[in-house]
Design a protein around this nucleic acid. Sequence first.
DNA 1: CTAAGTGCAAAATGTTTGCATACTT
DNA 2: AAGTATGCAAACATTTTGCACTTAG
Lengths: 136, 136
Amino acid sequence: MGTQSKYKTKQRDILLKYLQKSTGHITAGDVCEYFKEQGSSIGQSTVYRQLESLVDEGIINKYIIDGTSPACFEYIGDTCHADDSICFHCKCEKCGKLIHMHCDELEEIQHHLYEEHHFKINPMRTVFYGVCEDCQ
Amino acid sequence: MGTQSKYKTKQRDILLKYLQKSTGHITAGDVCEYFKEQGSSIGQSTVYRQLESLVDEGIINKYIIDGTSPACFEYIGDTCHADDSICFHCKCEKCGKLIHMHCDELEEIQHHLYEEHHFKINPMRTVFYGVCEDCQ
DNA sequence: CTAAGTGCAAAATGTTTGCATACTT
DNA sequence: AAGTATGCAAACATTTTGCACTTAG
């Protein structure tokens, strides 16, 4: 189900740079459009494939807002890898804000799911959707 | 954005009955298939439109698991409301299986996130990604 | 030289819409 | 009779795939 990229290509570089400097909510379509404007073109299949790789590698996150509109991608950044504590992500459905959360209770849930339900959660890909403090 | 049905039709009845007796995770496609097997056919547009109505009326819930796979629907009934035990979902990254979970610890997390982090999680949209028992 | 990535066009997927017909009230 | 629901087929939007070609290591 997952791919991880092994070669460093021009397309991957530009794509990643674009995501880094953007503030969330970037869709595959946005990427294609942006690159068309820039002159430096990139095939849409490449966009989709690279985005998938980057998600697999935990470099960006993918957000499903609702089934019909396109998926959004967002660069995660270094905040998460600083120490050994695991980072979970909360995404506000209203303002789109991404909240990084280091929290013991969340790590406990991880253990609980594994011990009791035999489900090995992948924190990198798991996103809690909801409404943030500011938007309530 | 929403419609609510005003007439009681044969199709709506059968559809609702099917959802009631099913245990979660019914897709629009499932409904169509089921009805084809039954002989009593139902148009797919009707299925989508009725499902939307039922969601609007708060009779069923809609779950978006990931953007590409079809949306799931579930009759709410008393099971979910009797206690306010909430359904969470786990999705296996390997086999794609969707696991339905009623779990106290998960409800605790919900409270914890709200009390301590002021984040009001939306369980309908939140999915835990990871690896299921069979795939480990 | 080999494995991996690219890009095009075509296919697949899930959902929505237009419209004539049929059913509920 | 008026308003609503149905069902077909066609339209849609997003994402995935097949395949020949290019590029990175």
